[in-house]
């Protein structure tokens, strides 16, 4: 039977809803807080929005990797631990390894770039290990990354001898701290360089997901792994690769966290980050059963989380209530999204 072709109006409406739907929630929450804080007027100020977007950078960077993982039907609970491990490794590198480098090399001011490369690399390694364990042992990602969530955090604590690793201020070039500064320097950047970096990476990832073979394969694996296998996709190898990508994103998030902390390696930092990252992807329309999710949705998800937290502060809502509100919003957002798509999760 030929299904009825929906009218042009209806199709336009559907299209508009698909593209702008995620923004509707954001607009709604913004309007709500603007109304609640209408007497102070601080909430809608440019400065405050600079703060909000800077606060999305770390979660957002990690969430880009998580988006790919969730599209491919997986999950990564070890993101927060990876971030902590990355900050510790970077700090230890600057403190212990850098003095051993030859003087000629140090004159080139390569310490920080090397540390950044190391941080991203460590993240990638953590991700690749996740992927290798998931593919090799054929255990569900939830369990494997629950294990590495503990293990990476433990490794970070052990390397740091259970304490915060400080790096002397002169070792950190001033540009590094500015990546996530609320007031950008130079001014014409409008927002912190980290925000621009996040936007650039997002665009690259969105193009990648749509136009590259591995990008399409990720959707296939998440939608139906058996079909992917049947179609000749090397599923185990793809999984290692996807978790490696997720790890790289977590590593970069770790570098940003390192900058955000003012250059200390903190084995206890970013605890619970993984859940905020997963929440952002899911609020943005990602499905934990795989095959669904978009970069734009994830970014909006991150913004919704940041606006919620920031708005609660401005509205003078106590911390405990904030957590309740955020929890409720996550459930409402995902329920609405499922209704919008006309199916149950």
């Amino acid at each position: 039977m030929l299904p009825a072709r929906p009218g042009l109006h209806r199709r336009l409406l559907t299209w508009a809803w698909t593209v702008f739907g995620p923004f509707a929630g954001l607009a709604l929450i913004t309007a709500l807080f603007a109304w609640m804080t209408r007497h102070s007027g601080q909430f809608l100020s440019v400065d405050n929005w600079r703060t909000i977007v800077v606060h999305t950078v770390i979660v957002g960077t990690a969430a880009l990797g998580m988006t790919v993982i969730i599209i491919a039907g997986g999950i990564d609970l070890s993101v927060g631990s990876t971030v902590a491990l990355v900050t510790v490794c970077m700090a230890l590198f600057m403190k212990k390894v850098d003095p051993l480098l030859p003087e000629a090399l140090r004159a080139w001011k390569v310490t920080m770039p090397l540390a950044i490369a190391l941080g991203v690399g460590v993240g990638g390694l953590c991700g690749a290990l996740n992927g290798a364990l998931i593919s090799g042992l054929r255990v569900v990602p939830f369990i494997i990354t629950l294990g590495t969530y503990q293990a990476y955090r433990g490794l970070a604590t052990w390397l740091a001898s259970s304490t915060t690793v400080y790096v002397s201020a002169e070792m950190r070039p001033p540009w590094f701290g500015r990546i996530v500064a609320i007031d950008p320097e130079p001014r014409w950047l409008l927002v912190a360089p980290g925000v621009w970096m996040l936007l650039g990476l997002s665009l690259a990832l969105a193009i990648f997901l749509r136009y590259s073979l591995p990008g399409r394969y990720a959707y296939a694996i998440g939608s139906n792994e058996s079909t992917a296998r049947l179609c000749g996709i090397n599923v185990p190898a793809m999984k290692v690769w996807i978790y490696w990508l997720g790890g790289l994103a977590a590593g970069l998030a770790g570098v940003l966290q390192f900058a955000f902390l003012g250059g200390v390696g903190a084995p206890t930092t970013a605890s619970g980050l993984e859940l905020r990252v997963i929440a952002a992807v899911v609020i943005g329309g990602g499905s934990l059963s795989g095959g669904e999710g978009t970069v734009l949705g994830t970014l909006v998800g991150c913004l919704i989380m940041a606006v919620l937290e920031n708005g609660c502060v401005h509205a003078g809502i106590p911390n405990a209530i904030q957590d309740i509100v955020i929890g409720v919003i996550i459930i409402i957002a995902v329920t609405l999204d499922r209704l919008r798509r006309g199916r149950t999760a």
Binding site: Y219, A220, S223, N224, S226, T227, G291
Partner: peptide, 12 residues
């Protein structure tokens, strides 16, 4: 169960 990825488009 195996032949098609039910959630994905015809073209995929």
């Amino acid at each position: 169960g195996e032949g098609l990825a039910i959630g994905l488009a015809i073209e995929d």
